[in-house]
Computed example of a mutant assay.
Amino acid sequence: FSVNAAMLVVARFVAGLPHGAFFGTATLIAKTLAEEGKEAQAVSVMVTGQTVANMLGVPAGTLMAEFLSWRLAFGILAAWAAMTIVLASAWIPYVAPIKDAGIAGQFKFLTRRGPWVILAAVFTGNAGVFCWWSYISPWLQKTGGWSSSLVPMLMMLAGFGMVIGGLLGGRLTDHWRHAGAAAIGQSISCLGLLLVLITPGNQPMTAVLTFWIAIGLFFTSAPQQLLMTEAGQGGGELIAGAAVQVAFNFGNAIGSIVGGAMLTTFSMNYRYTGLGGMPLALLAVGLLAFYSWRCETDTDAIHRLRETKVD
């Protein structure tokens, strides 16, 4: 119902407010309800909902806005959101509340080094990818030679890559170090950004890179969400889960700025968005490797020792 651009921007801001709260809560619910040893896979399936939305919803909304009305697209989203509230209330079983640690206690986990390393990795990794992703449509058209009418189909390909990446990341995380799995996902993205920079622009290569980087982008989702939820144990789980989304979205914003600066510097050559993003993605790999080496080795084994009496 927006009557001008300012009202539309305000509505967009309000619509974005629940984002962090939703993913923080949904991660905790998925982890709690999962079978033992399959927590990351449960979180990855939850995140897959977002990837399927990218694969189907984004192209559908784009086509609807182009041929019918952008207002109709938002109206359908509003109705869909209302239905989601009903389904969540009806289908999600009871989950015991987390420990009431008070306002200060919820943020206590941020006094440790580890959570900040994870958040820095989320921020730099997403900033790196979004240097390129923010300009993917003109990159596909000007570098890859795709027509604008085919861009929604390529977004479906990207969405499919996100689904694959999310499921693979969840499965690996359940069998290995969480930070190590996240580092592999960031490495996939880093390699993709390097290829964006150094490979010639053509339709097959740009399609492959769109799919490849999308895999890396969501490969990291489950391990990073779990890392933060576990870091916040003791009352800060929801804040920790929401903090991942804060870092994610902040990285998106900064990545867009860095990508724009690359375009300005290199005469609007969209391949150079990869140059801006690759060092940031590489820094994320280093941060996750550091966390796995120095922080993830603390298994709290001393707290799980049992007293044994010998006669």
Score class of each variant (00 low, 15 high):
Q41M: 15
Q186E: 15
G20L: 02
D100L: 10
E296A: 14
V258G: 06
T229A: 15
A15D: 12
D100F: 03
I254K: 02
M228G: 03
R306Y: 10
I136H: 02
V122S: 09
I85N: 04
A53V: 07
I136L: 14
G192Y: 10
G260W: 07
T62Y: 04
I29S: 03
T273P: 10
I188T: 07
A5W: 10
A5C: 00
V285N: 05
F74C: 08
I188N: 06
V208S: 13
T206Y: 06
G169Y: 05
A242N: 07
L275N: 09
W91E: 01
A6H: 12
L194D: 00
T62A: 12
L195A: 13
M278N: 03
T27Y: 00
F74P: 08
L56Q: 01
D311H: 13
G255V: 01
H178K: 14
A247P: 05
N126P: 01
R271M: 11
F22N: 13
F130S: 08
V14P: 00
L227H: 08
A158C: 13
I136P: 00
A179W: 09
A15E: 14
V163C: 04
F109V: 06
G235A: 03
V14L: 15
T84G: 14
V14S: 05
A88N: 05
H303P: 00
I188H: 09
M55Q: 01
I164D: 03
